[in-house]
Design a binder for these strands. Sequence first.
DNA 1: GACGAAAGTGTGG
DNA 2: CCACACTTTCGTC
Length: 156
Amino acid sequence: MNRTCLYSAPFGPITLEFDEHNNLVKLELSGKPEYAPHPLPEKWQDKLDAYFCGSMLDFGHPVSKNGTAYQRKVWQAIAEIPAGQVMTYQDIARKIGSHPRAVGGACGKNPLALVIPCHRVVAKTGLGGFSSGEEKALAVKHWLLAHEGIHIPMPV
DNA sequence: GACGAAAGTGTGG
DNA sequence: CCACACTTTCGTC
């Protein structure tokens, strides 16, 4: 079985899902306070605390293995993005030899939202899209970017 | 310059 | 096989 934990992030509650292997399998930016909050592993509590504190912007955790080969490639490329820096979908697509559309699709299925800096990936026209236009998720993305000191050029 | 349509890739039904 | 996705680019107005 999996354990669903809740973490109080500055922008709102986030849901972390752990499996019986005690490893993070999913990280949702949307808090679902409808489950009994299991004790979040101190290991991740500290990581998240350090991240939101601004001391550690890199989780340094392997990407989820629950995905296709291309998805893993995309996530890995994203994970290689240095902290405090953003990369466009085209750059990533070019890096892995694919196209921006596929990159966006792979990112959309990214189960580890915060672990994989998918929010660090922006479109050429600015922030780009997020969750098919989920303003809430986009707000979180903007918050995370601002947290890293990145200013997003508005497409006016 | 702004708006609308087509493109080329991967995933899901 | 067809439709969708966190886009990009070309064509037209």
